Simulated assay, not measured.
Amino acid sequence: MAKQQISLAGKVAVITGSTRGIGRAIAERYGQAGARVVISSSKPEAVNQALLEMRAQGIVCEGMTCDVSDLVQVQALAQRAISVFGQIDMWVNNAGISGPFGPILDVPPEEWRRVIEVNVLGTYHGCISVLPHMIERREGKIINVSGGGTKQAQRFLGAYSTSKAAIVRLTDAFIRDYRDHPYVSFTILVPGMVPTDMINQIPLVGAGHEASKDLPRIMRIFGSSTAETADLAMRAVSHETDGVSGKVYEIMTRRRVVWNLVSAFVRRKM
């Protein structure tokens, strides 16, 4: 579906963790399609800078500081969107952290716990903060961002993989519990390996220091862009998901993975 065919005029979108990286790309794409956008970050200076830059593009947007691991702050984010724009049509639970890159026993327990609090509880907080509003309006789309770990654990990213698998099951749970409200759709967005700050600045522990030397090569094979993810995020709020829950929008499909591996092998042999 060509992105220019999708209009979000009259819609309001909230995207968590949206001052940079994937979240920022989604926020800009929605805004360029006509949506009024509410962005957030745990860093107030990042929110202010992103608002300046997005407004310079002509995007109608608001934003506020929000640590998604804190339910009160997420509820305040939802209320801010409703107060300013009167409604919420789309909510993207994007905020996430990777945690340290290394063997599980080398990752401090508090770091592991923080990944679960931000990634899993943050997604849960977003869903329960906006769902009553969408049920009342009998309309809405919730997009939960998963990632590496959706299908299998990623080596040296135990907490992150666990959290992303949990997001899939959490989404399933919401779909089953609220199947009597088909006007609210839940979808899962699975980005590829995108060279954002989360990857480029990932903290290393233990054997992760040595293993990290392979990351550039892995990125060349399996890397994708924020623009590709934003394209899928547009499809997730298009008519494709009207009255439909459970769709999974994935960058690295099995076919693409196989093609990338074969292409890398051929290049190596040439």
Score class of each variant (00 low, 15 high):
residue 130 V to M: 06
residue 134 M to P: 03
residue 29 R to Q: 09
residue 120 V to H: 05
residue 51 L to R: 05
residue 31 G to F: 00
residue 130 V to H: 02
residue 16 T to I: 00
residue 103 P to G: 04
residue 122 G to V: 04
residue 128 I to K: 15
residue 62 E to S: 13
residue 142 I to Q: 07
residue 119 N to D: 14
residue 139 E to A: 12
residue 135 I to Y: 09
residue 18 S to Q: 00
residue 20 R to I: 06
residue 121 L to A: 11
residue 90 M to H: 12
residue 88 I to N: 01
residue 113 R to H: 08
residue 106 D to E: 10
residue 20 R to G: 00
residue 29 R to K: 15
residue 29 R to A: 15
residue 63 G to Q: 00
residue 119 N to L: 08
residue 47 V to D: 05
residue 19 T to G: 05
residue 99 G to V: 06
residue 114 R to S: 12
residue 80 R to Q: 14
residue 74 V to G: 06
residue 30 Y to C: 04
residue 92 V to D: 10
residue 79 Q to Y: 08
residue 18 S to P: 05
residue 42 S to V: 13
residue 92 V to Y: 10
residue 114 R to Y: 00
residue 125 H to L: 05
residue 43 K to V: 13
residue 118 V to S: 01
residue 79 Q to A: 12
residue 66 C to H: 03
residue 109 P to N: 12
residue 106 D to V: 03
residue 133 H to S: 10
residue 105 L to Q: 09
residue 21 G to D: 04
residue 31 G to P: 10
residue 95 A to Y: 04
residue 58 G to Q: 09
residue 126 G to I: 07
residue 51 L to V: 07
residue 88 I to P: 01
residue 20 R to A: 12
residue 48 N to D: 15
residue 45 E to Q: 15
residue 96 G to H: 02
residue 118 V to C: 04
residue 115 V to G: 07
residue 95 A to D: 02
residue 73 Q to Y: 02
residue 143 I to N: 13
residue 55 R to N: 12
residue 41 S to H: 06
residue 73 Q to K: 11
residue 99 G to P: 03
residue 41 S to A: 08
residue 141 K to E: 06
residue 24 R to Y: 00
residue 45 E to Y: 05
residue 32 Q to A: 15
residue 39 I to N: 00
residue 97 I to Y: 00
residue 55 R to C: 02
residue 43 K to F: 14
residue 108 P to D: 10
residue 78 A to C: 15
residue 106 D to F: 08
residue 148 G to H: 07
residue 120 V to E: 14
residue 46 A to F: 10
residue 84 V to L: 06
residue 88 I to M: 03
residue 37 V to T: 12
residue 101 F to L: 07
residue 54 M to C: 03
residue 43 K to L: 14
residue 16 T to R: 08
residue 113 R to Q: 13
residue 74 V to T: 13
